[in-house]
Simulated assay, not measured.
Amino acid sequence: MSNVNIVFTRVDNRLVHGQVGNVWVTASGANLILVVDDEVCKDSLQQSLMKMTADSVGVKIRFFSVQKTIDIIGKAAPSQKIFIVAKTPFVIEELVKNGVPIKSCNIGNMHKSEGKEIFHEVHVYTDKNDIDCFERLKNMGVDVYIQITPNDRKYVV
Rank of each mutant, 00 (worst) to 15 (best):
Ala30Tyr: 09
Ile102Pro: 04
Ala54Trp: 03
Glu114Pro: 14
Cys105Ile: 06
Val16His: 03
Ile92Cys: 07
Lys87Glu: 12
Ile61Trp: 00
Pro78Asn: 15
Lys128Leu: 08
Phe64Tyr: 15
Gln80Tyr: 12
Trp24Asp: 00
Thr26Phe: 06
Gly115Arg: 04
Val25Thr: 12
Gly74His: 08
Gly29Arg: 11
Asp152Trp: 08
Lys60Pro: 06
His120Phe: 13
Lys97Tyr: 02
Glu121Asn: 14
Phe63Arg: 08
Lys97Glu: 14
Lys97His: 08
Ile72Ala: 01
Pro78Lys: 14
Leu32Lys: 14
Val85Gln: 02
Gly74Trp: 02
Asn31His: 10
Lys81Met: 10
Ala86His: 02
Ser56Tyr: 02
Val59Arg: 04
Gln47Asp: 00
Ala27Trp: 12
Leu15Tyr: 00
Val20Pro: 01
Ile84Lys: 01
Asp130Leu: 07
Ser28Asn: 09
Gln19Glu: 12
Gly108Gln: 03
Glu121Leu: 13
Glu39Leu: 11
Ile72Gln: 10
Asn106Leu: 02
Arg136Ile: 12
Met110Asp: 09
Met110Ile: 15
Lys103Gly: 13
Ser113Ile: 06
Gln46Lys: 15
Asp130Thr: 13
Gly74Leu: 03
Met50Ser: 09
Leu34Trp: 08
Asp130Ala: 09
Ser48Ile: 12
Phe90Cys: 00
Asp43Ser: 09
Gln67Gly: 05
Val7Ala: 05
Lys81Pro: 05
Ile72Leu: 06
Glu114Arg: 00
Pro89Ser: 13
Phe64Thr: 05
Val144Asn: 06
Ala86Tyr: 03
Asn31Arg: 09
Asp12Val: 05
Arg136Pro: 02
Lys97Pro: 09
Gln147Thr: 11
Phe119Ile: 01
Met1Phe: 08
Val23His: 00
Ser28Met: 13
Ala30Thr: 09
Leu95Glu: 03
Asn106Tyr: 05
Tyr125Met: 06
Asn22Gln: 14
Ile72His: 00
Lys87Asn: 12
Asp37Gln: 05
Val23Ile: 15
Thr88Ala: 11
Val40Lys: 03
Thr149Ser: 06
Val11Trp: 01
Asp127Val: 10
Ala54Asn: 09
Ile118Phe: 02
Gly58Asp: 09
Asp12Gln: 05
Glu121Met: 12
Ile70Trp: 04
Leu95His: 06
Asn22Arg: 10
Ile84Leu: 10
Met52Cys: 02
Lys103Arg: 14
Val59Gln: 04
Gln67His: 11
Pro150Trp: 02
Thr9Ala: 15
Phe83Lys: 02
Lys112Met: 14
Gly29Gln: 12
Met1Gly: 15
Val23Gly: 01
Phe8Gly: 00
Asp12Ser: 07
Lys116Asn: 11
Val157Pro: 08
Phe119His: 11
Val36Glu: 04
Asn139Ile: 00
Val157Arg: 08
Glu94Met: 07
Ile82Val: 13
Lys154Trp: 05
Ala54Ile: 00
Leu95Gly: 07
Tyr125Gly: 05
Pro89Ile: 09
Cys105Ser: 07
Arg62Leu: 11
Asn129Asp: 14
Gln19Ile: 10
Arg14Val: 07
Asn22Phe: 12
His120Ala: 09
Asp71Ile: 10
Glu94Gly: 04
His17Ala: 03
Asp38Ala: 04
Glu117Trp: 08
His111Ala: 15
Glu94Phe: 10
Val25Trp: 04
Val40Pro: 00
Ser44Trp: 04
Val144Tyr: 09
Ser113Thr: 14
Leu95Cys: 08
Thr9Ser: 15
Gly29Asn: 13
